[in-house]
Design a protein around this nucleic acid. Structure first.
Lengths: 201, 201
DNA sequence: TTGCTTTTGAAACGCTTGTTTCATATAATT
DNA sequence: AATTATATGAAACAAGCGTTTCAAAAGCAA
């Protein structure tokens, strides 16, 4: 499971800890402790903590991109593609069994950008935003202005990310029992229906 | 403008700096520097950094609550109330002239909750969530289940908060020019229309 | 083996952090 | 005015931080 390569082990451990505590909150001793390597390895394989962080974010984004190959048969109705996309995104954001630190690390980078942010947008955000915008172009009447496409995309992604970024508040508002009943499939269905009606489909 | 009371000055300065850098990222020397007081004042007026943080969040939430008195004449159509609510929220989230650190501090607490979180939800979140839920009860058919009300509320708030929490990414995606054109009024109108259509109004 | 490079380990170095100390200044009380 | 309580200031503290050092270990070519 865990790789032998110290460099890889550092990236894995750093991903978990940076995601959990943020850049400042995480200490290199925490990281090398979980990775099971000597502290000098940070300086040896990466130059310093900051470089380790940037490489970690890129590593996480790269690992996330792999499983994102949503491909539909030609002729698939755009509404169905939208539903798939939303469901897929929510599953990735909320499924606790998957290595959640990937999404959380990315989410953290999005809200408190560092040097890794621009690169992350280029490698990770833009490709999948292109997919969503493509679907919306099919759903909305031809000639819809670019701005409207983006605003609609933001409305969709905003709904999805809310359940991830505001998780603790939702839990407090709904109560633990009710919160447990919010499975990703239910949420995806709600957001899809909400969005499709908003688009007049 | 700035109060004479060292305690108040500390709360103001701490609000700005905690909002900007988070709890770990902010240093007490940063704070006492901006407040213009001696470092011993932190220990004197509050016990330590953590207590200062909790008091700061409560202080900020309290200050925010004051101007939240959205009162409508009886008989106002719920769609109009919704528009007002969304516009008001977006203005508070995005207007750079206002002391933005209030919202940002609260946002930060929501996504990375600490000891101050539960109290914040009780004092700050629940009251205004009640307002929104009340409007939705008017908009949606009677007998709509509680869960559906909440999901709808999350869809609305999620759309609004997205522009605040993902601001850097939006800027990168749209480009600086296009981003500058996104004034709160435009966004509020989009979200309102999007939501009203989704609700079939 | 020998000699060289690459990798690891334990320790220490500065530096910054939150916190404390204590002497002094200011205000309040009698 | 004298005395006590309150507030401030400058300095230092101990702990934790990122980073560096350097010698020993491991890998590898000749």
């Amino acid at each position: 499971m865990t790789p032998e390569n110290p460099r890889e082990r550092l990236l894995e451990a750093a991903g978990e800890i940076f995601a959990e505590k943020g850049f400042k909150g995480a200490t290199v001793r925490d990281i090398i402790d979980r990775a099971g390597v000597n502290i000098a390895a940070v300086n040896y394989y990466f130059r310093d903590k900051k470089s380790l962080y940037i490489e970690t974010v890129k590593h996480a984004a790269c690992g996330e991109s792999e499983d994102a190959h949503l491909a539909w048969a030609p002729g698939t109705p755009p509404a169905e593609k939208l539903r798939d996309l939303i469901r897929f995104q929510l599953l990735k954001l909320l499924d606790p069994s998957r290595p959640a630190w990937l999404s959380r690390l990315i989410m953290r980078e999005l809200t408190q950008p560092s040097a890794a942010c621009a690169e992350l947008v280029r490698e990770y955000i833009e490709p999948r935003s292109k997919v969503l915008l493509g679907i919306l172009r099919e759903l909305l009447p031809p000639g819809t202005p670019r701005r409207k496409l983006y605003l609609t995309a933001f409305s969709i992604v905003g709904q999805c990310h809310f359940y991830c970024s505001h998780k603790p508040i939702i839990r407090l508002l709904l109560g633990e029992d009710e919160y447990q009943r919010l499975d990703p499939a239910t949420l995806a269905e709600h957001i899809t229906q909400f969005t499709l009606r908003a688009l007049g489909a």
